Simulated assay, not measured.
Amino acid sequence: MIYREFGKTGFKCSVIGMGTYYDPLWILGAKVFGLKKGEKEHVDAVKAGLDAGINLIDTAELYGTEKLVSQSIAERKRDDLFIATKVFFNHLKYDSVIKSCNRSLRNLGTSYIDLYQIHFPSKRVDIRETMKAMEKLVDEGKIRHIGISNFNLQKTKDAQSAMKKYEIASTQMPYNLSRRDFEKNLLPYCRENRIAVLPYYPLGHGKLISQSNWPPELLNHIFEKYGIKSTAQMALNWLITKSDLIFPIPRASSRNHVLDNAAAADWVMDEDDMRKLESAFPL
């Protein structure tokens, strides 16, 4: 596993993380009926990732998986892990942010959250009110860094301008080889400001897993050159090679998938092959 600094936080994260969003039906079942289908398999998957050297885990109050993460990390050294969660857009008033954070801390079974993210921007709550609460949480030691998710460039700038003491540590957006609009303006801004990037849907909602969606000659070339057999590894390796600020968070659905994803950090794609992949999936 490769580790590098997460933006400007000083913490060395594994370049491959683990996401714990499963699907809307899973969320509905967990939150409304208390049913968590495949929970044991998901916990086993996260534990397998930790054993493989992954130390970055992403969750959210919306997902209903914070307690699942708590189970997965119970026997691990907390300071070795980088745990990220999110506050939903209907909890962005000052008092609601504080309450949501305290609830997430209880669910995660931890005394602090490494990265607390605003899941979606709000049309009703002034970002300055939300950031005031976020900075208060940093001051109290309940969170260590502040992130955003699903913010466009202007809203990202607004979020940073609303902060008085700290900086935006990260942003989370859909980004993968087949969906590269993120590169037009947000990626350059992140590079300029050393903001870490957590691409979700790094495998294109499964599109980049199917070999039928890849040019056969290119697929065979990459497989033979690097000795791999996984399209997921190709897609993830392209992301982590693209920038040292990028930390994809593919879903931790099963042990085998997580171990395959982790192996994407065992090799380095050269610049010529990076260009070939980008030509196959142009902007």
Score class of each variant (00 low, 15 high):
E129S: 05
G141W: 06
G147P: 06
Y166L: 13
C190M: 02
E167D: 14
P174E: 00
E217H: 15
Q211Y: 08
K132S: 13
R128H: 12
Q233D: 05
T130M: 02
T231K: 05
K123C: 12
K184D: 09
A162D: 09
I209Y: 09
Q117C: 02
K165V: 12
R179T: 11
E135D: 06
D126M: 02
M173A: 00
G147R: 00
N176W: 03
N213Q: 01
N220D: 13
E217R: 10
A235I: 03
N237Q: 01
A232H: 14
S178W: 08
E183V: 02
E129D: 01
A232R: 10
M131E: 01
L218R: 12
Q211I: 09
Q233F: 01
Q233V: 02
D181S: 14
P121H: 06
T156A: 06
L177C: 10
S122R: 05
S178P: 12
N176T: 03
L218T: 14
Y189M: 01
H205G: 14
W214K: 06
A169C: 11
K164P: 15
R124K: 15
K136R: 14
S170Y: 05
E183S: 08
Y175C: 00
W214Y: 15
G204S: 00
R194H: 12
K132W: 09
P202T: 02
T156C: 01
E140T: 08
M163K: 14
R194M: 07
S212C: 08
A235L: 03
N220A: 10
I228P: 15
